[in-house]
Design a protein around this nucleic acid. Structure first.
Lengths: 214, 214
DNA sequence: TGACACCTACCTACTGATAGGTAATCATAA
DNA sequence: TTATGATTACCTATCAGTAGGTAGGTGTCA
């Protein structure tokens, strides 16, 4: 792994040197490529973008991307791993912020809402779910693990809700967990289809109304 | 539109002539292509299949498909139109079968469950939603119309539920309609991700438990 | 201190495969 | 004889990926 704030010494589109010895560049190329690829994958799916698109966006040559990610499968794996890590960190943050199930699950829904980015992006795991046939077994494994980790986290918090009573009518935490994940993913899909974030709010409002009404 | 039971007169992989003058062929080529394309699009998305794949599946040459659908955009439009027609007919059938909102919405959910085909296919509109950027404006328009027609049908039946009391706790039919569509689409996505139809059942069980309990 | 080996991050120029699409032609049924 | 629905043979553009090269930094050892 390249140093996060390492200096850029390559040729091509060079980093502008400042008057000081520091460089302006915030991200290393690899991270920049990952961010860019995540963006486009969440808009157009895995089969919807090419190395050429990516090269154009980032401002290097197509062949140079192969230096960072030899094959597109390597990029896909790195994408889902990075995504899973970021997601896990976000869940840990939610856990540390509140001990009340309703607050945590409300934050969870809000996280999916923010991920919409105004109605034109999906959760990476939704975008990848359609392109399963194009993904490597290793990527699929990581994707499936992300999925089951999500379900586990949700189920634990619905179990918490049974104890703390912060959500009304929770009978079966496992069922609730699956239903909520389906709901937020479906809500994203609808908002993306209509390019209208309000549709996400409509679709989730029924669940959110159960929070804080024990 | 070609005659549904037309004869096949082409060369190449020919239809075997029976002893009688009738042909065994059930579908005309165009319909066969549409069925096949729908199948693969619902598995891999719009960007996930090519004319070459289709030609291989149907058993004619790639160039021959262009006779039926000059451009892939024409195929996409025909796909979504056929899909919308089939869907509308299914909703009309549901309407004619029962006057009770709970029965109708239960049948609606079951329809989405059947569409899963054992956990490896999605509703065409979900598959197309991810590939929006690759679709023509005309196809997008038809897709959006399908979407709003679905919402309308659902809202009407939740309004019916308010009157006939066959579903518990219906306060806002428009909200319920959006939430249910998000739920079934998300449930499909989850079942597809895990290749497990049971996940669809888990995700929808919460809603179905409200039916018939006024 | 300088020489040398090695590393990083790019580059140009290419490959074979595949994408969607076109033109001209041919066989058969009506 | 004409319409239909195929065919072969091709096109151009793009796909992921490779070969080989290069500027410039870094580590090591005499």
């Amino acid at each position: 792994m390249v140093c996060e704030f390492g200096t850029n010494t390559g040729r091509g589109i060079p980093v502008k040197a400042t008057e000081s010895s520091y460089r302006l560049r915030i991200m290393d190329r690899r991270t920049e490529l990952l961010k860019c690829a995540e963006n486009v994958a969440r808009r157009r799916g895995y089969d919807g973008f090419s190395y050429a698109d990516l090269a154009n966006d980032v401002g290097i040559r197509k062949a140079s991307i192969h230096y960072h990610f030899p094959a597109k499968a390597d990029l896909a794996l790195a994408l889902i791993e990075r995504y899973a890590d970021t997601f896990a960190a976000a869940l840990a943050m939610i856990d540390s912020t509140s001990d009340i199930a309703a607050d945590r699950l409300s934050a969870y829904v809000q996280m999916y809402r923010r991920a919409l980015s105004g109605g034109n992006k999906l959760c990476l795991c939704v975008a990848f779910a359609i392109s399963r046939d194009s993904l490597s077994p290793e990527t699929l494994e990581t994707l499936d693990k992300f999925h089951s980790d999500s379900i586990d986290w949700l189920r634990q918090n619905f179990e918490l809700a049974v104890d703390d009573g912060s959500i009304s009518g929770v009978d079966n935490p496992a069922v609730e967990a699956t239903a909520l994940l389906a709901m937020v993913e479906g809500a994203q899909l609808m908002a993306r289809a209509a390019h209208r974030v309000a549709d996400f709010d409509l679709a989730t409002q029924l669940f959110l109304s159960r929070l804080g009404n024990p």
